[in-house]
Design a protein around this nucleic acid. Structure first.
Length: 262
DNA sequence: AAGATTATCAACCGCCCGAGA
DNA sequence: CTCTCGGGCGGTTGATAATCT
């Protein structure tokens, strides 16, 4: 026999983007009942979705303790270091970032960090220098960084004011690379990840990230639901929200972080 | 201004794993 | 021990937004 039974009866179930109405139903249900059996959630909440879809929507988008927003430089650096040690174990990586989801980190890795590593001459899978023509990529790396910085991150920019900044950034990059190499040269590195927090909590500077953040932060969309600012829904939801701290450890923080959207 | 291209990210799919019967 | 089931994970897709030509 091939394949596998679907997780649920898909016939008649809605797919695709969630509507504000569906979100309301899901939020209200979870607030009122907590998280138990996801399979039952759609039925009980009156949603024509499969349980998996509900879980995904909640954990990746509706949970009030989500941080959202652009990744900081420090976060990005930490993701890179963790990925070097853990590989594509996104949930493990995400566990180091309260308020971030594995999906979010995975997306960020695939769309941004991966490219940066390539620009740095690093293989995003192995985190080692790409042995291209001549295998001397590591030596030209710093120049590559400079080139790519002025190429791609100097958006709308004056080119002359950048030299000084670039020097600083290059120093940081060199330091980062050094740390990074040491990480890989340490044969115990994969073991050390199991035990604890050793290298994960330190931060290094990753200037490409800084440059990028500077150019994109201003335009970063705060896409948290517009319906959350609707008065009618606010009046209905907010009291529930405030009463529900018992269900989730991070709830209080979540409420606070929501305030920015309300 | 309009069409083409690229980037982003929410959401889905299918597999894996652990718990419990 | 084996089987079933649900939750979780990582890979991938596709719609939309942003940017370029």
């Amino acid at each position: 026999m091939m394949g596998r039974q679907p997780c649920c009866e898909k016939v008649g179930l809605k797919r695709g983007p969630w509507t504000a109405e569906e979100d309301k139903k899901l939020i209200n249900f979870i607030l009122g009942n907590g998280q138990h059996c996801w399979r039952l959630v759609p039925k009980l909440a009156g949603l024509s979705r499969c349980g998996k879809s509900c879980r995904l929507r909640w954990t990746n988008y509706l949970r009030p303790d989500l941080k959202r927003g652009a990744f900081s430089e420090a976060e990005e650096n930490q993701i890179i270091e963790l990925h070097a040690r853990l590989g594509n174990r996104w949930s493990k990586i995400a566990s180091h970032f309260p308020g971030r989801t594995d999906n979010e980190i995975k997306n960020h890795w695939n769309t941004r960090i991966k490219k940066r590593l390539k620009l740095l001459g690093l293989d995003p899978v192995t985190h080692r220098p790409i042995q291209g023509e001549g295998g001397e990529k590591q030596n030209v790396q710093i120049n590559d960084v400079k080139a790519t910085l002025s190429e791609s991150d100097n958006v709308g920019g004056s080119d002359c004011s950048q030299d000084q900044e670039s020097v600083l950034e290059l120093d940081d990059t060199a330091a980062f690379w050094q740390r990074y190499s040491m990480l890989w040269e340490n044969p115990d590195v994969s073991e050390s990840t199991k035990s604890s927090t050793s290298a994960a909590t330190t931060t290094t500077s990753f200037p490409m990230a800084a440059a990028e953040t500077a150019t994109t932060a201003a335009s970063a969309p705060e896409s948290f639901h517009s319906f959350l600012s609707e008065d009618s829904f606010l009046n209905e939801l907010r009291p529930l929200w405030d009463e529900s701290a018992d269900y989730f450890p991070a709830w209080e923080d979540g409420v606070q972080s929501l305030d920015g959207f309300l």
